[in-house]
Design a protein around this nucleic acid. Sequence first.
DNA 1: ACAGTTAATTGGAACGTTCCAAATATGTCA
DNA 2: TGACATATTTGGAACGTTCCAATTAACTGT
Lengths: 345, 345
Amino acid sequence: MSKARTSIVDIARAAGVSKSTVSLVLQGSPLVNEKTREKVSALINDLGYVYNRGAANLRQSKSKIIGIVVNDLTNSFFAELAVGVDMVVQSAGYVQFLAHSGESVDRQRQVIASMRENGIAGLILSPARGTEASDVKPLADSGIPVVVVVRNLPGAKVSTLLSDNYGGAKSAVRHLINLGHRRIAFMGGFADTAVSSDRVRGYRDALMEAGIALNQNFVIHSAPSRAGGATAAERMMFFDERPTAALCFNDAVAFGVCDGLRSNDIEPGKGFAVIGFDDVIEAKTAVPALTTVSVDPQGMGQRAAQLLMKQINAGQVDQETLVTSVRLVVRQSCGAPVRQTEELA
Amino acid sequence: MSKARTSIVDIARAAGVSKSTVSLVLQGSPLVNEKTREKVSALINDLGYVYNRGAANLRQSKSKIIGIVVNDLTNSFFAELAVGVDMVVQSAGYVQFLAHSGESVDRQRQVIASMRENGIAGLILSPARGTEASDVKPLADSGIPVVVVVRNLPGAKVSTLLSDNYGGAKSAVRHLINLGHRRIAFMGGFADTAVSSDRVRGYRDALMEAGIALNQNFVIHSAPSRAGGATAAERMMFFDERPTAALCFNDAVAFGVCDGLRSNDIEPGKGFAVIGFDDVIEAKTAVPALTTVSVDPQGMGQRAAQLLMKQINAGQVDQETLVTSVRLVVRQSCGAPVRQTEELA
DNA sequence: ACAGTTAATTGGAACGTTCCAAATATGTCA
DNA sequence: TGACATATTTGGAACGTTCCAATTAACTGT
């Protein structure tokens, strides 16, 4: 019942055919006679045979595993991204091999190495902070397609899928300006990431466009988490001239900012307008519902996976950079009167 | 640079030794001479050799992969569980192969099959609703250890790690009773899961213990999500005699209930006491901070992984059932005056 | 210099597949 | 019936490792 794995030749022996025939059956080849197929299939079931994909890969050296490593599984943005990837990967007959680096480059190196050893056909990577182009170079060099998502990796010869951070931030700030706000803050996120600097740039340009002078203090960095948002909001309370609205680095920060406002008896959406970034699932159901720049992580995962699949099938690693468009979803937290949606290029 | 994978024999040829020696080097055997080791190691780097674990497994038929499949990655409880598992799995030199079933038994069957084909050394499973014992039987039969977590799987010959749902619910309700509440509801969750029925049982017994008659209407089932919580709260609003407090199926539901209360101008923690279950990260930072039964998903993941590792190393599949203890974390949402913690067995 | 150890190294035979060329069976036509 | 085409089936040689038994090299002490 346990012990020795039953193999293709065990089946062959039992069915009185050759192992080649069994192999043919396994692959659903049309070459094999209907009767033999039935007999073999029955035996496969009865003997509890399980296909050894490792052995198969050994011979044909192309596996059906795609790897995905994310920097923070705990953040539901990435969890959803992974789910999106999983959808297309599964339906293409591949299986997903998900790992998380916990924002550590070392760990990331480890898991990538391990994935390589296990023969992945391609990799989707949301890099940990501080990842170097050299971390993915060996992959790309040995012809394994890599798609980098969410954060970019300058210098790496790989495809990249980013969201339109600049445009999204810009349109969010424009919206706030249209609503009459003049003192607008940017809250949360670390200054040293490309994602953050792109969003801040969009924020600045929107202000400039409207002829509003930039107040340097209004860019308040913090950890990109709910807790970070709360502390950022607390810090803002000490300003002589407080902002009346904020664009937040992401939704987690935005929720934290709401928490911080409430602790100071300010109701988000009434006394202060809050806009997030990402549109995680909770954004819709929170109270007040969060106005946010929708990135659709699941869709992004799907696109990334499609891009990867294309390259795997084409058998070549391209270096293509896609920017996915992004749209502002207006809900209650910005105090806008009506529910509307603004499309972006 | 790409094309043919360089193998152990390529290295051997280049170094002027036999493939056996290279293999020895790879395994860090003390049998090999220091000078040869160096030469070989250098070549391994230079030629960009990557170890083929598939081939190795083929020979020694014990892999270093452990599989984990969760029913909903999007729920941060499970994401954290996975992170916990990952921690111990990594440090044991194994790698994790995470998949999510999206609460579909079919998908779950697929991914489990796929993992089997890829030769996992063990499996951690948080089963999708409706999973049968027969779904894991073949695994267990072929000697692959399986640890079922979170939900139990009656009849399956596998180890199980559950949290003390009964005790946790009981102590939460006791707390509400001590606070003076008499009309207490149980909100959220589907009636047909063991987890739900255990919690409801704890809720009932606590009421009974206090001599409070059970009002059947006060058990309001709904989807175990934020949205589900909101609708449950809305439904409650139509009661003639409304509850003054609720134990919720999980934290997501609890947040939803808070949303629903607010839409009806009731402030959670003031006009109505809310207790959740799970203690997800957001529970601490939410406003009001959520009183909840802390399950520590990450710790649970770690314990599950340890249990699995033990079985893998022992080379036998036990059938052990562990119940992890659980503690009530009192925060603001139940309206308790002081911040305190109650330990449970 | 020789036997006796100990230290390093090494061929092959597995492991469970796939793939190819070749063999065999089956059918068709005149 | 013989010759050909077509439908099935089949041995073996890979694939990249590990493991074992066996070989060779390098030291001992006398």
